[in-house]
């Protein structure tokens, strides 16, 4: 179990994490979502004792990472930033990490086999492709056979084969009953793997929910689109507390806060003709963007119009 308790982290004047609190429960895959720059990596670095929070604390099974007598056997981590000396071979990198815990060469060979790097294990890690680098990172994370695995954007930049490999590996870890804490800025990727979701934006907690609840909520909030020759009358008929109505074009209304059934019944009561009535549907991606839309650090406004949830192209 990972507990993040009221963590605030500042880098100079910039607040990276603001009073962040959530729990990663054991034995399930928890997705950690947020747009780029939301503070996902910083949160993971705080959990792993690499960054020191200004306030609050993070614990693993009740203890600070720093106080774990054999951290690699409790938590394995794959960071987004590279964490390997480019001049050392994969085997020697893993061996040097294993030796800090008194873990033997047998286990080093085992994890190399597990991630399929046996053929290149003696080659310098500096020459590895992104996919091979990720495999080496996963091998390092599994070195201590930990009950908890933390992975920061493990699929980022990988080719389809690499992404498939990561997904299969994640499912395998979860099936073994391990706690998996996985970050991503892509909702679609999460929906396939995660049971629980922790969503942050600008260093603040936005949602701590399940995938199913998020879909329900998103669909409920999605707009009903209605086309009518009596749009103005319909607008008056629908006006109520908690209902937002917009008119993107003449004769068309977007109604938020009502179901399509409620809109249809209201129209019938007032004898208003409807030409079209479309029920609200929202994908997870839309739900995520709507949740984080106001919390994105960089809007793509310079490229014409805000595009929530995206960073401008670098």
């Amino acid at each position: 179990m990972i507990e993040v308790d009221s963590v605030t982290k500042r880098f100079g004047d910039k607040v990276a994490l603001q009073d962040l609190t959530f729990t990663v429960r054991p034995g399930i895959v928890t997705g950690f979502l947020g747009p780029n720059g939301a503070g996902k990596s910083t949160t993971m670095r705080v959990i792993l004792g690499l960054d020191r929070p200004n306030e609050g604390r993070a614990t693993i099974n009740g203890r600070s990472y720093r106080d774990l007598p054999a951290p690699l056997t409790e938590v394995g981590a794959l960071l987004e930033a590279r964490a390997i000396h480019t001049g050392r071979s994969a085997y020697n990198h893993l061996l040097s990490m294993a030796q800090t815990h008194g873990i033997g060469r047998e286990r080093v060979r085992e994890v190399i086999e597990l991630v399929g790097l046996s053929e290149v294990a003696r080659k310098r890690a500096g020459g590895f492709s992104l996919g091979m680098g990720q495999r080496l990172g996963v091998a390092a994370a599994l070195l201590g056979d930990p009950s908890t695995v933390i992975l920061d954007e493990p699929a980022n930049g990988l080719d389809p084969e690499g992404i498939l490999w990561i997904r299969t590996m994640l499912r395998g870890l979860a099936a073994e009953g391990r706690t998996v804490f996985l970050s991503s800025h892509l909702m679609a990727e999460m929906a396939q793997t995660a049971d629980h979701l922790v969503i942050i934006g600008r260093g603040r907690l936005i949602a701590d929910t399940t995938v199913a609840d998020l879909v329900t909520q998103a669909s409920h909030d999605a707009a009903v689109i209605v086309r009518s020759p009596q749009a103005d009358e319909l607008r008056d008929a629908l006006a109520a507390d908690g209902v937002a109505i917009a008119s993107p074009e003449r004769g068309v209304l977007e109604v938020q806060g009502m179901t399509s059934a409620q809109v249809g019944e209201a129209a019938a009561r007032h004898g208003i003709v409807l030409h079209e009535l479309i029920a609200g549907q929202a994908s997870l991606e839309q739900a995520f963007m709507r949740l984080t839309g106001g919390d994105v650090e960089f809007h793509a406004s310079i490229f014409g119009g805000p595009e929530p949830g995206r960073e401008p192209a670098a």
């Binding site: 034995g27 873990i103 201590g144 056979d145 391990r178």
Partner: peptide, 17 residues
């Protein structure tokens, strides 16, 4: 339902290691 415990239970970070 039980989270697995590492099989490498004798592992410890010590200065000699």
């Amino acid at each position: 339902e039980r989270a697995p415990v590492s099989r490498l239970r004798s592992a410890r970070v010590t200065l000699p290691h």
